[in-house]
């Protein structure tokens, strides 16, 4: 029973089951799994912090707080602040989400918490 349970836990946490010797490591594995999840969550929070920083900079930064300063610079027919407020911020938002998707899919695989393997 215990071995079966262990196999299930191994499968769930993505750790390879290496035979009966793992039995003695049972407690260790459980705490490793928890550790694993905590690390995953910390990385996730780090990504969120960086991406939301970009999000804030292009919208509230370029489009609201520093818009007048940026408007003194011109590219083609656009004043840069105006462009960020009416076009640029939106393009960056799209990029942010796709970067997030890429980073998180990679992170899910690294920490074996993605949905495909289970």
């Amino acid at each position: 029973m215990l071995i079966l349970r262990l196999k299930v836990i191994c499968a769930m946490s993505g750790v390879a089951y290496r035979g009966e010797s793992d039995l003695s490591n049972y407690g260790l594995m459980m705490s490793e799994k928890r550790n694993n999840h905590e690390q995953y969550w910390r990385k996730n929070l780090l990504y969120l912090g960086i991406l939301l920083g970009v999000w804030f900079t292009v919208s509230f930064g370029c489009g609201v707080l520093f818009v007048d300063y940026l408007d003194t610079i011109r590219i083609a027919g656009f004043k840069v602040g105006f462009w960020f407020a009416q076009q640029g911020a939106i393009y960056v938002f799209v990029v942010i989400i796709f970067v997030y998707v890429y980073l998180m899919n990679r992170l899910d695989k690294t920490y074996n918490v993605d949905e495909d393997d289970h």
Binding site: L51, L52, W55, S59, G63, V64, A85, Q86, A89, I90, F93, I96, I97
Partner: peptide
């Protein structure tokens, strides 16, 4: 409106 109604998706 432009930033507000798109930025929420992030």
């Amino acid at each position: 409106y432009l930033m507000g109604w798109t930025g929420g998706y992030v």
